[in-house]
């Protein structure tokens, strides 16, 4: 067995087009006990903002063998409020310290007036908000001195004032800022279902050219008062079959992309999470073979 697992077409400074998982500290011993068939690990930026200790030590150790992606959940790029300068500075310090192969954030917001709500909240898709988000993405990319990826949200509500379809909104941000997109296939499926749209149609409208990473996760069904099903972006189980099918459709069009399994609640034992990532890896490998 090689000392290090294959890095799946790793290029310096780029996230390799293989499978990855969201890193959970309880898996550290299992991960480092053997070479894993994985290309990268992703961590939430806000969990690594202490000065030192085990979080940074573990991440540094993982980065010796695997690429690392840092995924922010708290900056609020999608909000109408100015970005929090202190938080922006924390992100810069974190990326300077760990030099991740990728940094990504969300088309969402999480706080207002100095409060932080710890949820990814939706925004109206209007020309005014588009200008604000573009300015925020520009500001973040300039601060980090790197291209970021912006993730499509899972949403439950829409805004009466919205005039721009979500795929077009994302495409415009990418075009005007030069950022890439992170296509969360589960989010796309959840949003389409919740808004009574066809997931396939929503995917056909999605700007795939700027996509630099895929997220896959499990969702949950909630009881809905109406005739339409209601899905929750729960990250608490395996990826659903229709999401796997959509993922295959995406990869057939884009070619292999870095693909992350997110499993944040009811986190399973390491072999279960690894098996889910290997399933994604198998799709990527089939795509390579077919090419």
């Amino acid at each position: 067995m090689p000392a290090h697992p294959p890095r799946h077409d790793v290029a310096v400074g780029a996230l390799p087009a293989g499978p990855g998982v969201g890193y959970k500290p309880q898996h550290f011993a299992a991960i480092t006990a053997a070479a894993q068939p994985l290309a990268f690990f992703e961590v939430h930026a806000e969990n690594y903002m202490g000065d030192g200790g085990r979080p940074h030590a573990d991440l540094t150790r993982l980065h010796q063998d695997y690429a690392v992606s840092i995924h922010g959940v708290g900056l609020g790029l999608g909000g109408s409020a100015p970005l929090d300068a202190a938080h922006l500075a924390r992100l810069v310090r974190l990326c300077d310290r760990h030099q991740p192969e990728r940094f990504s954030e969300h088309l969402a917001w999480a706080g207002h007036d100095g409060l932080f709500l710890n949820d990814l909240l939706p925004l109206p898709y209007t020309p005014e908000r588009l200008d604000q988000v573009v300015a925020h993405v520009d500001q973040l990319q300039e601060a980090l001195r790197r291209q970021i990826l912006l993730e499509n949200p899972a949403t439950y509500l829409t805004f009466a004032e919205s005039t721009i379809p979500e795929p077009e909104f994302l495409g415009e941000i990418a075009r005007r800022t030069g950022c890439g997109l992170l296509l969360d296939v589960n989010n796309l499926f959840v949003s389409a279902t919740n808004h009574a749209l066809s997931p396939q149609a929503l995917l056909r409208a999605f700007p795939l050219a700027p996509v630099g990473e895929i997220h896959l996760a499990g969702h949950a069904s909630a009881t809905s008062a109406g005739p339409a099903p209601l899905l929750l972006d729960a990250h608490g189980g395996v990826v659903a079959d229709p999401v796997w099918a959509l993922f295959e459709t995406v990869i057939a069009r884009t070619g292999p992309l870095p693909t992350l399994i997110e499993w944040d609640n009811d986190v399973p034992a390491w072999p279960v999470l690894r098996a889910e990532a290997e399933r994604a890896g198998a799709v990527l490998a089939r795509c390579r073979k077919a090419a």
Partner: peptide
């Protein structure tokens, strides 16, 4: 100014966010 598809009341959809905020912060 919020809309929900499928005949679902807006209040029920909005409660998803309210619950997420409360539950995830209690979990923290």
């Amino acid at each position: 100014g919020l809309r929900a598809a499928g005949g679902d009341p807006v209040a029920r959809r909005f409660a998803i966010h309210r619950t997420t905020v409360r539950v995830t912060l209690i979990d923290a």
